[in-house]
């Protein structure tokens, strides 16, 4: 009872935004970023915040404009302890899922098997142009580039990591320094909202990836439409996301784990219960495999086979869509 009450209290404080975060944040080395968030919130309703429509933040219903800020606060808050969080949520297997996700996409153009460019057609571009949305810490981007380089001997494929959150991008840039792609043109980071990718030209992308990001978007349908717009005809939308567990028994066990244990562990490991609570709830709210597959179709994509692949009994799923010619 007590725990429950204090959790709600904590969450309320957290959701109030900046001020409480500053003191907590500075201890953990986030002072700059958190202050930036606090400042952003002070001027009151900006043009995009006027919306009176509501959406979900975890299990709460909040004004749409607020969700974006709150999601921002969550990821600012977990940026550094981010891997811990993924380990907790995926029972430690998100790395295997990500490996599988990337291996299956088989990114990169193998120069040995690429079709010879004939004189009649313009030469095909040498590598793929990949956009990794909500790419935050660069986890997926590094894997994509590693696969292209080592498996397909492709030294041209580029990945643009786009994320709405500057703190996640900063973490990604930091990690990129210790990768072979630091200071090459193959990897770049841009701050962008998946729902309106104004800086990305239409029909310019071969592969659009989004891993564990889409459930945080306020308008998933708008994000899908943008994905469709930026992809070349024949280009692929690929999404790795927590999903609905298939077996009722396993579902019960996993829910127990995720709702009871993860926020608590989040508190102990990262000192941040509320962010983890949000993450658990946002997973529960995310559409089922079939619903999401249908959303992808509505956006105009062709889906391969039944449209998705379950991972580990449906804890996560990979959805794909191909933009028709």
């Amino acid at each position: 009872m007590n725990g429950q009450a204090s959790r709600i209290l904590l969450r309320r404080q957290f959701l109030e935004g900046g001020r409480t975060r500053v003191s907590r944040g500075s201890e953990r080395g986030f002072s700059c970023s958190v202050r930036r968030y606090a400042q952003q919130q002070q001027p009151g309703p900006g043009p995009e915040r006027k919306s009176t429509q509501t959406t979900h933040f975890g299990f709460e219903t909040v004004a749409e404009g607020v969700k974006e800020q709150r999601v921002g606060a969550v990821f600012s808050s977990v940026a550094a302890s981010y891997d811990t969080m993924n380990d907790l949520m995926s029972l430690g297997i998100h790395r295997l899922w990500k490996d599988h996700f990337v291996r299956n996409l088989n990114p990169g153009r193998n120069p040995l098997t690429a079709p010879p460019s004939s004189t009649s057609t313009p030469p095909a571009p040498q590598g793929w142009n990949i956009l990794d949305i909500a790419g935050g810490t660069g986890d997926i981007a590094f894997r994509l580039l590693d696969h292209a380089s080592t498996i397909n001997h492709d030294a041209h494929t580029t990945v643009t990591v786009a994320d709405i959150n500057p703190d996640m991008l900063a973490e990604g840039r930091k990690r990129a320094l210790s990768s072979p792609y630091a200071r090459t043109s193959r990897l770049s980071f841009v701050e962008a909202n998946a729902e309106s990718l104004t800086t990305i030209p239409s029909s310019s992308i071969d592969l659009y990836t989004v891993a564990f990001g889409i459930r945080n978007f306020t308008h998933k349908d708008a994000a899908l439409r943008e994905a469709y717009r930026v992809l070349k005809p024949g280009g692929v939308f690929a999404c790795l996301e927590f999903s609905k567990v298939n077996s009722p028994l396993f579902d019960a066990v996993y829910k127990r784990w995720s709702f009871a244990a993860i926020p608590l562990i989040g508190q102990l490991v990262a000192g941040d219960r509320d962010s983890y609570q949000y993450l658990v709830e946002s997973i529960e709210r995310f559409p089922s495999q079939t619903e999401f597959r249908d959303m992808i179709k509505v956006a105009g994509f062709l889906v391969p086979g039944k449209g998705w692949e379950d991972l580990t009994g449906g804890i996560a799923a990979i959805h794909k869509g191909v933009k028709p010619m």
Binding site: P115, D206, G234, G235, V236, A238, L302, P304, K306, K320
Partner: peptide
């Protein structure tokens, strides 16, 4: 092989990545 698929995709006017349309 995947190479045959990729070459076929290109012949048909698709991209390398379009072979993802074939889940198996």
């Amino acid at each position: 092989t995947l190479n045959a698929l990729t070459l076929g995709a290109c012949d048909a006017g698709y991209l390398d990545v379009s072979t993802n349309l074939l889940p198996r």
